[in-house]
Computed example of a mutant assay.
Amino acid sequence: MGRIRADSVKGHADVKVTKVFDSYDTSPCEYQRAATAQEIIDDPDIDAVFVCLPNHLNKDTTISALRAGKHVFCEKPPAFNAAEVREIQAAEIAAGKVLMYGFNHRHHDAVVKMHELIRSGRYGKILWMRGRYGKSVDNNYLNTWRANQKLAGGGILIDQGIHMLDLFLYLSKGSFDEIHALVSSRYWNIADVEDNVFAIMRDSNTGVEASLHSTMTQWRHLFSIEVFLERGYMVLNGLKTSSNSYGDEELTVALNRSTAPAATWEDEERFKYHTDNSWDREADAFLHAITGGQGATIGTSEQALQVMDVIDRIYSNKRRESSQLYDTLNGGR
């Protein structure tokens, strides 16, 4: 991720990548290597830092950089829970610097198109959304920091499902206060690192409902989000990435059809995207937030807090169900 972020900003005339730090990759590169992350944070000639670290380091590194007077771009998740995000927000307010989070999926071409169409009002209000986001992992996964709850904060939900939750919130411009979820690890059997989440959510203010399946036992990588509105629908299948694991982005859009059973597929529009422009678009947003003087408007700490609050609620379902199962196995004691 650090290399991707460096490449996304180096084309800007008013930006120079000064130093990089990586405790694992020490191979020669085009940038000066710092001995520690703190060296970058303490450098008075550096204005902004990108935090591309294992999850457990995100919160403290972000706070440290803000306190040192740096603008900060941090990868997701911002922290392990909503309470920790509030700690970060306190540092952000005190520093008066730009803080932006890498909810990169907002910047994919198909999602940008969906957002524009929804905001146009042509299709009416959102009724419901459905998202499926899954990948396959192998035994090598068990040897990575992502398989350690103390380092990752959780499993597939905080790793990948967080993006789908963020899209739900972004597209609906709402929140979810009613949440029911099943959180399990039945295949990889890693303690506190779930391999599947099924969640159903509702915004009681708007009535918008959403369902999420986040999984690492999807043996064929899959990304799909469906948004059904009063006067039409939008279905995005695929997500353009460097590995092409999820295929090209194909967005299908249509207004409500004629009365069934005479409804046809002929009135659908299809938009295909073969290039991933999300990294450059996201870098542009961060740099504009700094130079424009208005702060971040996308990937803000408040948006990060909102999605982490949903994740807290989903994980609380897991704890509650585990407690109920324990009581059942022990005769209700």
Rank of each mutant, 00 (worst) to 15 (best):
Ala285Gln: 10
Arg220Tyr: 13
Phe198His: 13
Glu282Trp: 08
Asp195Gln: 07
Gly102Glu: 10
Met100Ile: 07
Arg130Leu: 09
Tyr123Lys: 04
Ser323Tyr: 14
Tyr24Ile: 15
Leu239Cys: 09
Leu251Ser: 02
Phe271Arg: 00
Glu87Ala: 06
Leu127His: 07
Gly154Met: 03
Ser204Asp: 12
Trp188Thr: 03
Ala254Asp: 05
Phe168Val: 04
Ile4Gly: 04
Leu165Met: 12
Asp159Leu: 07
Glu268Met: 13
Ile156Val: 15
Ala94Val: 03
Tyr187Lys: 12
Tyr187Asp: 11
Leu66Ile: 09
Lys135Gly: 06
Leu329Val: 11
Ser211Asn: 12
Ser323Pro: 00
Ser27Glu: 13
Gly232Ala: 08
Leu287Pro: 01
Cys74Met: 13
Phe50Ile: 09
Arg122Ile: 05
Phe103Arg: 01
Asp22Arg: 07
Arg333Trp: 09
Leu157Ser: 00
Ile290Pro: 05
Ser214Glu: 05
Gly331Ser: 11
Asn205Lys: 11
Ala199Val: 04
Asp22Ile: 01
Ser120Gly: 15
Val85Met: 06
His180Val: 10
Gly134Val: 06
Arg231Phe: 11
Glu302Tyr: 02
Thr62Asn: 07
Ile162Arg: 01
Val208Asp: 04
Ala191Met: 10
Lys125Phe: 09
Gly293Trp: 08
Ser23His: 10
Gly131Met: 06
Trp279Asp: 00
Ala83Thr: 12
Asn143Gly: 11
Asp47Met: 06
Arg132His: 14
Ser278Thr: 02
Asp276Ser: 14
Ala210Lys: 06
Val98Leu: 00
Ser242Gln: 12
Ser184Ile: 07
Leu117Asp: 01
Val235Pro: 04
Asn140Val: 07
Arg146Trp: 11
Asp248Arg: 15
Val197His: 01
Pro261Val: 00
Pro28Trp: 14
Ile290Asn: 00
Lys70His: 08
Ser243Leu: 13
Val183Phe: 03
Glu230Ala: 13
Ala83Gly: 08
Trp219Pro: 04
His115Glu: 15
Arg106Phe: 09
Gly155Met: 07
Leu171Gln: 02
Asp22Gln: 10
Asp47Thr: 09
Glu226Trp: 03
Asn139Tyr: 12
Glu30Phe: 06
Gln303Asn: 05
Ala260Asp: 12
Glu39Thr: 08
Tyr170Ala: 01
Lys19Met: 15
Thr144Pro: 04
Asp7Gln: 15
Glu268Trp: 08
